[in-house]
């Protein structure tokens, strides 16, 4: 999966699950997801479960930190690094 595919997938999931009715263009690659309150802790866990399933990766408990998940760009980088290491 390339970065653009991962970004699209993560964006669609976040819009559908947590931002019903939001205009897609308002959710940019750099929108702060955790520090701006778009994902709470439960939503973060749901997103992680989705990424694990659809990207075929396993995310360790220690990796559930804002540095890996705070924006769509960071999510794409993180997922790609996980895919490269497996």
């Amino acid at each position: 999966m390339n970065a653009i595919q991962i970004r699209t997938m993560a964006r669609d999931f976040i819009l559908n699950e947590f931002l019903p009715g939001e205009r897609p263009e308002n959710l940019t690659d750099s929108t702060e997801l955790i520090t701006d309150g778009i994902l709470d802790s439960l939503a973060t866990l749901k997103l992680v479960a989705y990424l694990e399933k659809s990207c075929g990766i396993e995310i360790a408990p220690d990796e559930l930190v804002p540095e890996n998940l705070n924006s769509i760009a960071q999510i794409a980088n993180f997922v790609q690094s996980k895919q490269a290491s497996t």
């Binding site: 939001e22 205009r23 308002n26 520090t35 701006d36 309150g37 709470d40």
Partner: peptide, 15 residues
């Protein structure tokens, strides 16, 4: 925008 509302709450209320 829902993002704007959530952002405003995150900066003005405890989580």
């Amino acid at each position: 925008s829902l993002i704007e509302l959530k952002r405003f709450c995150a900066h003005n209320l405890p989580a």
